[in-house]
Computed example of a mutant assay.
Amino acid sequence: MDVVTIGETMVLFTPNSAGYMRHANQFSMKFGGAETNVAIGLSRLGHKAGWVSKVGNDEFGKAVVAFIKGEGVDVSQVKVDLKRPTGVYFKELRRTSDVRVYYYRKDSAASGLTPEDLNEEYIAGSKFLHITGITPALSDSCASTVLEAIKLAKENGVQVVFDPNLRRKLWSEEKARQVLLELASLADIVLPGIDEGKFMFNETDPQKIANCFINNGSAKVVVKLGAEGAAFFTNETSGVIPGYPVDQVVDPVGAGDGFAAGLLSGLLNGLNLPDAVKRGNAVGALVTMVEGDVEGLPEPDEIEALMNSKGEDVER
């Protein structure tokens, strides 16, 4: 296994028309979850990704697992909770610049994850463990599960990649800051955005954000800059990789997960950090051009076409 990821994937309902959701009378059913967005992105790029989670014993849970398995992601570590339901959320596209998300995931099956649900051999057999700040926000048992997964990864020489992926609606700011800082301190690679840097350290400058993460214990930090690209930092080097221009952003949700998939793909293929970041930028840009969390995740030829159309060097 190349990458193992842990977290909740839900059924996503999106109105077939733009505007206020209260006026919608038809919805499309899709699927979304930060961790499986990354896993599917990796699978489409030819890597082996596995997903650890729980779903409800319901039609939604069966649909989620079937979809993700159909995308080539290993679901052997997904368990069925006989008492809790599969989570659901709605995405309201009021206009291109105003996308709102509403979660119905309290006491969901995935929120019942415990450390006992982890298989050490499964994690030990991977190259990277990908985690986000969403999973520990679901419950105390989920937080314990993530910490145990990191412990198992470190004991077995597996690199830990952490995307803070702040979700303010899920927990208090104090608890979120405390847990995210702890997880970041244990990660080998951290992938924050500017908003997360401001939330965690009250900094908005990429260099200062990276310094804070490195001082907190992270070896490598990649700060996502949206349309501007991303900046990478280690103790030895740093640089900015420009983003790829997008004629029209159709749906920005999922771009950060696409970036993570592209970055991990590059590292798995032996690229250096700047080139891996460049691949991440390309995947993130392509994701924004298609509606849906995973529908825009590209295959290798699409990435090559975009990257060959605009070869940007590192700005140092």
Rank of each mutant, 00 (worst) to 15 (best):
5 T>Y: 14
14 T>V: 13
15 P>H: 12
18 A>C: 11
21 M>F: 11
24 A>W: 10
26 Q>I: 04
27 F>V: 05
30 K>G: 06
33 G>F: 12
34 A>T: 08
35 E>Q: 09
36 T>Y: 08
39 A>G: 14
46 G>I: 02
46 G>C: 02
49 A>H: 08
50 G>K: 00
51 W>C: 04
55 V>T: 09
56 G>K: 04
58 D>M: 07
62 K>V: 10
63 A>E: 08
64 V>Y: 12
65 V>W: 01
65 V>L: 15
66 A>Y: 01
67 F>W: 14
69 K>R: 14
70 G>N: 10
75 V>A: 11
76 S>C: 10
76 S>V: 11
77 Q>M: 10
82 L>W: 07
84 R>A: 15
91 K>D: 01
92 E>F: 11
95 R>P: 00
95 R>N: 09
95 R>G: 06
96 T>P: 09
101 V>D: 13
105 R>N: 04
105 R>M: 06
107 D>K: 14
111 S>K: 12
111 S>Q: 09
112 G>R: 11
114 T>P: 05
115 P>I: 03
115 P>Q: 09
117 D>Y: 11
120 E>P: 09
121 E>I: 06
123 I>K: 09
126 S>M: 07
127 K>H: 09
132 T>H: 02
140 D>H: 15
141 S>Q: 15
144 S>D: 10
146 V>E: 08
147 L>N: 05
147 L>I: 12
147 L>P: 02
149 A>D: 05
153 A>D: 02
153 A>V: 03
154 K>M: 10
155 E>S: 11
157 G>M: 11
158 V>A: 10
162 F>W: 02
166 L>Y: 05
173 E>S: 12
173 E>N: 12
173 E>R: 07
174 E>R: 03
175 K>L: 13
176 A>R: 05
180 L>F: 05
186 L>P: 00
189 I>C: 08
192 P>E: 05
193 G>C: 13
194 I>D: 09
194 I>H: 14
197 G>K: 10
200 M>T: 03
203 E>G: 05
205 D>F: 01
206 P>L: 00
207 Q>A: 11
208 K>W: 03
210 A>Q: 00
213 F>W: 03
221 V>K: 02
221 V>F: 00
223 V>I: 13
224 K>Y: 00
227 A>S: 10
232 F>D: 04
237 T>G: 01
239 G>M: 02
240 V>M: 02
241 I>S: 04
242 P>M: 06
245 P>D: 14
246 V>R: 07
247 D>T: 04
250 V>M: 10
255 A>R: 03
256 G>E: 13
257 D>T: 06
261 A>C: 07
263 L>A: 11
264 L>V: 07
267 L>T: 07
268 L>M: 07
271 L>V: 05
272 N>L: 06
272 N>C: 05
275 D>S: 14
275 D>K: 13
279 R>F: 09
280 G>L: 06
282 A>T: 12
283 V>F: 07
283 V>W: 05
286 L>R: 10
286 L>E: 08
290 V>E: 15
291 E>S: 04
292 G>P: 04
293 D>F: 06
295 E>I: 01
295 E>V: 00
296 G>D: 08
297 L>P: 03
302 E>R: 08
304 E>C: 04
304 E>R: 15
305 A>R: 13
306 L>F: 08
308 N>L: 13
310 K>L: 15
310 K>E: 11
311 G>H: 10
312 E>F: 13
312 E>P: 00
313 D>C: 03
